[in-house]
Amino acid sequence: MERRDEAELARLMRAAISGDERAYGDFLQKAACLVRHLARRKIVHGGIDPEDIVQETLLAIHLKRHTWRQDAPILPWLYAIARYKLIDSFRRRGRRLEIEIGEIAETFAGPTSETLNDREIGHALTALAPGQRSVVESISVDGRSIGETAKWLGMSEAAVRVAFHRGLTAITGRFGQKQNEYK
């Protein structure tokens, strides 16, 4: 399969270089399929349209077709261009993501907008007073409602609400401090 593609594409490109428009059209069509396949396989997290990569690669192939040596294999050349365009696109997207995150961080400076991983939550919980801790744990980690928690711990619902609120405030306070330390 690969070898047939190779021979066929090289033949079409040679014809294209000597001025055959039909052959060039066929070449670009086949190249588009190969690149589309590659792009769909490599773009796993979304955010980039594989078809953008296809078009950017086709354009690059067109503009840089003098860099293919007619006696050299064409698939490595084609894939190297596609990979370059793919990496370029990932890099640009990375930069855009950084900018977006920067803007968000400026707008919502509060540490509560952060999502925390389990280890961090566990760490924060151990720093709480035992009463607050069992309440926050019951609601945030185990997922019980306020009523269920009250029944489980033998407390009034109002007391659970107050303990939960204070516990959360203490945790966010601690995280705010930590972030300031890092700055």
Binding site: A16, I17, G19, D20, E21, R22, Y24, G25, L28, Q29, A32, E51, V54, Q55, L58, L59, H62
Partner: peptide, 14 residues
């Protein structure tokens, strides 16, 4: 521009 249009344009430029 979709891809087949792009291919047509590029192919015309040999």
């Amino acid at each position: 521009m979709n891809t087949s249009e792009l291919i047509k344009k590029l192919a015309a430029d040999t």
